[in-house]
Computed example of a mutant assay.
Amino acid sequence: MRVTLRSVAEAAGVSTASVSYAFNRPDRLSPEMRSRILAVARELGYSGPDAAARSLRTGRANAIGVIFTTELTYAFSDPYVLALLGGLAETLAQSRTSLVLIPFAPVVAGLSDAQVRESLDAVHRAVIDGAVADGLTDDHPAVRALSERSLPLVRSSDTTAGRCVLIDDRQAGREIGRHLADLGHHEVAVVVSSPGEPGCAITVEEEAALYPYSRHRLAGIREALPARARVRVVSGGNNAAAAGRLAATALLAAPDRPTAIAADSDVLAAAVVEVATVQGLRVGRDLSVTGFDDVPLAASTGLTTVRQPIHEKGRLMARMLLDPDNTPNRLTLPTELVVRSSTGPVPSHRLGGM
């Protein structure tokens, strides 16, 4: 026979409410009673109330979904993702709300209808009260699926149809471009997170398919550099160190290598510094490198980068979902250019430009 909350209550000689409290509200019971109920539950093989059934009864799942467009194993190695999850968890813990991680195919273009449906299935089945999504556009299938379920969604990218916590990526890009221009650089490569193979050049036409934050940062860099500057855009793959090393190797092997490389994450920038150093280049003198985010490895690497409040972004996204009536629909957080040793004046023998 299937073991239920009621059968545990009967075996323990308590009410069904007490069994529910033992799993969900331990503060309502004495430690001794909770221990006795849990011991009976273990003996009967009962693991706890069914979350889906409970949400149907109460109308709430007490859980928030996080849409990932990366492999979950990779997500837990990305310092940006970890900081964002930390901010989300800090706020959600105060209301005993859980996080549900929902993976989605990294690249939708080129997938068959069946493959898209497979990714969407996780979104449709998730027992959640709302979701946060990092960098997804209005037309992304996951965004549309959540809208069809009438679930509240908070994003980190600009949207006219929903709530968002964002930074001004374009302005942050301008700060990087202006800094490099002031140092005399006009041979600049930009390494962006991209579904493409690391090290491959990205054409102007292909830039439209980049993640929103990459497009905005790239646009800002271009706007701040002098008109005669040459800007090359290269794929940094999935924003991992190995991909960044491939991108850096391709750029530095070129006969007309850039005098500055601007990466749209500190992970990619640190990989560029590593490759350049191995090749005997003096970072900050022979080659300037910038990153983005100011995660812990940026300081230890001496990276010039843009600091953004990632933890605070996650905290505020969670707050918007938990308390929509007392939070704004849109928040733009400040960024700051942090100058360190990885950038310096263009080498004298490259002052002639292109």
Rank of each mutant, 00 (worst) to 15 (best):
R6S: 11
V8F: 00
V8G: 03
V19H: 09
A22N: 02
R25E: 13
L29P: 09
L29W: 01
M33Y: 00
S35T: 15
R36F: 06
L38V: 07
A39R: 15
A41T: 08
Y46A: 04
A52W: 00
G59Y: 13
A61D: 08
N62K: 13
I67P: 01
T70L: 07
P79E: 01
L82Q: 15
G86Y: 03
Q94C: 01
T97I: 04
S98T: 13
L99E: 00
V107M: 02
V116S: 02
S119G: 15
S119Q: 06
S119M: 06
D121K: 15
V123C: 07
G130V: 09
A131D: 07
V132G: 04
A133E: 05
G135A: 04
L136I: 06
L136K: 12
D138N: 11
D139H: 11
A145F: 00
P152V: 03
S156K: 10
S157V: 12
R163E: 01
C164W: 11
L166Y: 00
L166R: 15
D168A: 09
A172W: 04
A172R: 03
G173H: 03
H179D: 02
G184T: 02
V188Y: 02
V190F: 00
V190Y: 01
S193M: 11
I202A: 00
V204H: 05
V204Q: 12
E206A: 13
Y211E: 11
Y211V: 12
S214R: 11
R215D: 03
R217L: 03
A219I: 12
R222N: 08
P226H: 10
P226G: 07
V231M: 01
R232L: 08
V234G: 07
S235V: 04
G236R: 12
G236L: 01
A240H: 10
G244E: 03
R245P: 00
R245V: 06
A247G: 05
A247I: 10
D256Y: 00
P258M: 03
A262H: 12
A262C: 07
S265R: 09
D266C: 04
V267T: 15
L268F: 02
A271K: 09
V272C: 06
V273R: 05
T277A: 06
V278W: 01
G280F: 05
T290V: 09
V295Y: 01
S300N: 13
S300C: 00
S300P: 01
T305A: 02
Q308V: 09
K313E: 08
L316E: 08
M320H: 12
T327E: 03
T327Q: 07
L333Y: 09
S342A: 08
V346A: 01
V346N: 05
